[in-house]
Design a protein around this nucleic acid. Structure first.
Lengths: 186, 186
DNA sequence: TCAAACCTGCCAAACGTTAGGTAGGATAAA
DNA sequence: TTTATCCTACCTAACGTTTGGCAGGTTTGA
């Protein structure tokens, strides 16, 4: 349990934030999940803002690792692109959670600056990866960045809508429709 | 102070909710915007949940009117479809707000049931309108519903991403990209 | 006169945060 | 080897603030 409390706090906070957002985060609930008291969180983090920033940073770092794994494990860039929505699907599979940074994108006005920075980093690494894959898949280089952003936005939107119905098959149908329409490669 | 306080409350609450979500709503701020005291809101609404539901209901009713206006003012269904993202653009134009129901879709877990109902109604009328336009634009009827949902999700996603950068031109670029990819008609 | 519309003034709960304390292990000096 | 000191990782208790909500009084206009 207390092998590494800092890590446990980060994970509990991430889970809660994926379901309730930054505003919906509260230190007592997080502490309760970890098995400590709320005040003890202040031993590991200066405050809620820094905890939120740490959670968001860890989140995009983990995502970056997952994207790299897609690149290396799947050779073909088109197949890798096909696997991309699966990352967002997994959040829905875990108790209908959503992408931490999509939620925080909605809350953007009320986010501490340190958190805003990490949320933007998440979008940046996603678009960068998608852009690289598109470039490798023979798409004209001038259009890669634009198309990458479009895919990112569409997948995020699909997750948002599917979540509000708690319907995994709706997410699949939406992604499928993106493919069929030509937004993403088949 | 005002001719019809109930309407003023609804509008102030809608503005706040479009920027901060349901969780970010608080009665004192709303009252202050209207020019009354928080307790007076209870004269017009039983509580926060009912106010939230009323706001969301009014929101999709207004959207339904706007969609109908698009249909009647623009004869051509393809041109009407082209004008659709403009509705979402307007929210961003107004102090970088977002679609009330996109925000609430993220907060879905924490929404009172009465609010959930109205949020879903918003999605339903959007998809229904899009589906009708697509059908009128010679798209095979079997695929209209699916495509309509895809467009709705994609536009919502584009708004979410553009908002987190406070960048209207990014929204335009995303929509443009959707068109170029073939998701939406040109 | 009477009801609609709004007020003052409070409450309990929940929030982030801080102060101060403590059990137990590590470290260092004798 | 013992003793004094310090550190880690938590605790309890409380702070000030904000929240939704409510009881009951006051103003206003027809």
């Amino acid at each position: 349990m207390s092998e590494n409390a800092r890590e446990a706090i980060l994970e509990a906070a991430r889970r809660k934030a994926q379901a309730h957002g930054y505003g919906g985060l509260n230190l007592r609930d997080i502490a309760s999940d970890v098995g400590i008291k709320a005040a003890s969180i202040y031993y590991h983090f200066p405050g809620k803002a820094e905890l939120g920033a740490a959670v968001a940073k860890r989140y995009w770092e983990d995502t970056a690792k997952n994207l790299e794994a897609l690149t290396t494990q799947i050779g073909d860039p088109i197949k890798a692109l096909n696997a991309y929505p699966g990352l967002f699907r997994r959040s829905l599979e875990e108790e209908n959670r959503m992408c931490l940074c999509s939620f925080m994108a909605a809350e953007y006005d009320d986010l501490p600056d340190a958190v805003k920075t990490e949320v933007q980093a998440f979008a940046d690494i996603n678009v960068a990866w998608l852009s690289t894959m598109l470039a490798a898949a023979l798409i004209p280089k001038a259009k890669c960045q634009t198309r990458a952003r479009a895919i990112f936005a569409a997948v995020a939107g699909a997750q948002l809508i599917a979540r509000s119905r708690a319907d995994l098959s709706l997410f699949d149908a939406l992604i499928n429709s993106f493919r069929e329409a030509g937004l993403m490669p088949k």
